[in-house]
């Protein structure tokens, strides 16, 4: 324990250590950039870790083509402001098939536009280390996830074949064709993320803040009508409501919450007083029990 550092400074220092370890020991690292709040924090940490240089790895965004418009605008603006490299990949086969979550459902959409697209992007880029923003507090199956999580040649995660992690001595050795997923935010909680964003004044996508938006009930969640690909019968039923999003993803799969929290402190306040966990708004987790673990074995981040 360190008496001279606050928990946020310590988390920051530990994440920076992890990012530098990746840069120093892998040949071709890449940082996943999902445009969400965790990605914003991760990008901020990467800028700090290598200052005055730029991060020695590009960002990778797997674009499912169903992200909120505001997310894409935010992404392009941040990349320009910070002068970092960005690689964007969408699954060309998925585009050809015209994958549509409203038609094909969340399972097929996520598999083709996210899981398969990610595999394509990683194979194409030949990355040996993929930095992701997952946190251990997000979901039960992540509590045991390593910071350096080992993947075989097919990007598969084998829960029985993970290396022990002792002290801060990470084993970064891999064979050709294998890779690691690295999670520098492993030990951060949702509250830590928000506090750090607040303290460091890190820009985030405005969708996190409450505003009047057109929403409609869809499969038990309130989704936003972000463009006219929303089926007409749903669009007709849309109403303007003051809502915000606790997590960001594909707009047809991301449930809005009723909220008037329009500033960061209000978001944090709402989170602290809330009675439900962060992932509740994500439709993909509810498919089946233990579904995150299954997705991970299949290669989903």
């Amino acid at each position: 324990m360190n008496n001279r550092m606050t928990h946020l400074k310590q988390l920051e220092a530990e994440s920076i250590y992890i990012l530098r370890e990746v840069a120093a020991t892998f040949e071709k690292p890449v940082m996943m950039y999902s445009i969400g709040k965790d990605s914003s924090v991760m990008l901020h940490l990467a800028m700090k870790a290598f200052y005055p240089a730029k991060p020695p790895f590009p960002l990778l965004h797997v674009d499912t083509l169903w992200k909120f418009k505001e997310m894409i605008e935010f992404r392009d603006r941040r990349v320009k402001e910070l002068g970092v490299d960005l690689v964007v990949h969408s699954n060309p086969e998925g585009i050809e098939m015209g994958i549509n979550p409203f038609v094909h459902g969340s399972k097929v959409h996520t598999d083709i536009m996210k899981t398969q697209a990610l595999k394509q992007a990683l194979n194409k880029g030949g990355y040996d280390a993929v930095i992701g923003g997952a946190r251990r507090d997000e979901e039960k199956s992540r509590a045991k996830e390593r910071i350096f999580s080992f993947r075989d040649k097919n990007h598969r995660w084998d829960p029985k074949n993970q290396r022990p992690e002792l002290w801060n001595l990470f084993n970064t050795k891999i064979h050709k064709g294998e890779s690691v997923r690295v999670f520098p935010l492993s030990n951060w909680t949702e509250l830590d993320i928000w506090q750090y964003i607040y303290l460091e004044k890190i820009p985030i996508v405005p969708l996190y803040l409450a505003k009047e938006r057109p929403v409609v009930e869809y499969e038990g969640a309130k989704i936003m009508v972000d463009d006219d690909r929303v089926p007409e019968e749903l669009r007709k039923k849309a109403r303007n409501e003051v809502v915000r999003f606790r997590t960001l993803g594909c707009y047809p799969l991301t449930g809005a919450i009723e909220s008037t929290a329009s500033t960061l402190p209000e978001i944090i306040q709402e989170m602290l007083l809330s009675k439900s966990s962060e992932r509740e708004g994500r439709l993909i987790d509810k498919d089946q029990e233990g579904s995150m673990e299954k997705k991970k074995i299949e290669g989903y981040f």
Partner: peptide, 29 residues
């Protein structure tokens, strides 16, 4: 608090799990 589906079905814990909570004074891992 037990995470992995495979181990839940067996009713045993097979690895190190990290859990988080905090109070007014400290953040705990």
């Amino acid at each position: 608090i037990d995470g992995l589906q495979s181990e839940r079905e067996q009713g045993i814990t097979i690895d190190v799990a990290y859990r988080f909570f905090s109070t007014d004074k400290r953040k705990y891992i």
